[in-house]
Simulated scan of single mutants.
Amino acid sequence: MQINIGSAERALRLILGIVLVALPFLAGLSALWTWVSVIVGLVLVVTGVVRFCPIWALLGIRTGGRE
């Protein structure tokens, strides 16, 4: 697994992911939007932590790599 997420994108994914995971608990979203928000948030956090996005790999996109 090669790194394909750069530092700036990593920071953005981590921040946005944490916000999306916390949002349902702070805003009282409906059940459907709670699940959507938490799942998308967790995917962003995991891809930010491991610095690899499978969708970017399929599309041949690299925002980082040799850092």
Rank of each mutant, 00 (worst) to 15 (best):
F25C: 04
E9F: 09
V43A: 05
T47R: 09
V49G: 04
A27T: 04
V19C: 08
V38Q: 07
S37D: 03
I39D: 06
S7D: 12
V38F: 00
A57Q: 09
L14S: 02
I39W: 05
A8L: 13
V36H: 00
V46K: 10
V46R: 10
I55P: 00
I15C: 10
S30F: 02
L42Q: 08
F25E: 03
A57N: 10
F25Y: 08
L12D: 06
T47V: 06
T34N: 08
V49M: 09
L16H: 07
R51K: 09
L29K: 00
I39T: 13
L20M: 14
V49Y: 08
I18V: 15
G65P: 10
R13V: 01
T63W: 05
I3V: 14
W33S: 10
L23H: 10
R66H: 14
I55V: 14
G6P: 06
A27D: 03
L42N: 13
V40F: 10
F52V: 04
A22L: 07
Q2D: 14
L58K: 11
S30L: 00
F52G: 00
A27Q: 08
G17M: 00
L32P: 01
A22E: 07
W33C: 08
T34P: 01
P54K: 02
V40M: 11
C53E: 02
Q2H: 14
I5Y: 03
G28R: 00
C53V: 05
C53Y: 03
V50Y: 05
R66K: 13
V21M: 07
G17Y: 01
L32N: 02
L26H: 10
V38M: 02
V21Y: 03
L59F: 12
I15H: 09
L16C: 09
V45T: 12
I61T: 11
I18Q: 12
L23P: 07
M1V: 06
L14K: 07
Q2M: 11
G60M: 05
L44R: 06
